[in-house]
């Protein structure tokens, strides 16, 4: 492992990170024990967006039909979206089920 890592010459000066938003490459989805499952049929027609605005992990994306799908590679499974969804369209399901 250590052999593959950059030498001191290869790091950017002062370890300044030049690629913005690069944590996106890190899949925090691994942390999850429960995942949110959306029943689109229950989602409000107006797409209230609570699941999006209340997600601490920026793990909600708008799909082609305007629904907020979950980005499972980053969703940590906190469950806020399920609790906050007004029509109860999101349920938390144990991983592996």
């Amino acid at each position: 492992m250590a052999d593959e890592m950059p030498t001191w010459r290869e790091y950017p000066m002062a370890a300044i990170i030049l690629e913005p938003g690069s944590t996106a490459k890190y899949k925090t989805g691994d942390w999850r024990s429960r995942r949110p499952v959306l029943d689109s049929s229950k989602c409000l027609k107006s797409k209230c967006a609570r699941c999006w605005i209340y997600c601490p992990d920026a793990a909600r994306r708008v799909d082609e039909d305007g629904y907020f799908e979950v980005d499972l590679s980053h969703c940590k499974g906190c469950g806020i979206c399920a609790r906050e969804c007004p029509p109860g369209a999101i349920t938390m399901v144990e991983e592996g089920e």
Partner: peptide, 24 residues
């Protein structure tokens, strides 16, 4: 609701996903 129409949402988060914050 009016302010959160999906088409109004930013395509890119300025505080990106993958941060190491705890669940919730």
């Amino acid at each position: 609701r009016a302010k959160f129409l999906p088409r109004h949402l930013p395509s890119r988060e300025l505080f990106a996903e993958g941060h190491r914050g705890c669940q919730g």
